[in-house]
Design a protein around this nucleic acid. Structure first.
Lengths: 114, 114
DNA sequence: TCTTTATATGCCTTGACACGCATATTCCAT
DNA sequence: ATGGAATATGCGTGTCAAGGCATATAAAGA
């Protein structure tokens, strides 16, 4: 289960991450909100924890899980070259449209990237 | 194999996408650069094509594959809430550090997001 | 038409992993 | 000490997808 990509391939794990983005949650809270069996939740949390997506602190019998940013930042970094790719494409499209139908009243700052 | 996430979970597919980000390539070129068997390349391309990551045009016996932006943009959109999460965290950390050790000569625009 | 080049598809095997269910562990309360 | 709540772990099972290899399809060139 090596990579960040494999970890987030699982829908339930993505659901857990999305839950935690607002605030930390206990296992039981996750279980109830996502309506999934408790062992399933614990297992996915284990995977997420070992991959560095979450960390937990102990609160009596509960464990509170919270998000850690690094793995998703890694994913974000992987996306960077592709972002350049598609914004280049939008630029090209825009230039083309401008040529076909020159702006009569430019809407202020059509071109992105300062 | 439904989701964008499952598609990019496969390392060879990510390699193909990264190759195509610079320019379009034929199956044979991909095969040689990534040193993987031709049927493997074709199968992964099929998956990528059906999921909308790439499209192909015919050039005699060759097929030229090029990137399409939409699915990765979808991934980018999924990441958005998490980006807000971690930039909030960096802000908090920075405020904390500033308090402990106030900036003697501010480097101009420490705070991101204009 | 026959051969060669480029790509696609089919079948089979193998390995991961997600799940259900039962059970273990840990901590609190009484 | 005992019971109960919260969480973790173990095991057996089914599914699904990736890879290897052979083969099919298609177009080009001789």
């Amino acid at each position: 289960m090596e990579s960040v990509f494999e970890i987030i391939a699982e829908p339930n794990r993505r659901a857990i991450l999305s839950l935690l983005v607002s605030s930390q949650q206990s296992v039981g809270e996750i279980e109830r909100q996502l309506r999934m069996p408790q062992p399933t939740v614990s297992k996915h949390l284990r995977v997420l924890r070992e991959a560095g997506f979450v960390e937990s602190t102990v609160d009596a019998q509960r464990r509170l899980y919270r998000l850690k940013p690094e793995p998703l930042q890694e994913l974000d970094a992987w996306l960077a070259p592709f972002r350049r790719f598609w914004s280049a494409h939008v630029d090209a499209l825009e230039r083309h449209l401008d040529r076909m139908h020159p702006p009569t009243a430019p809407k202020e700052n059509r071109r992105r990237r300062k």
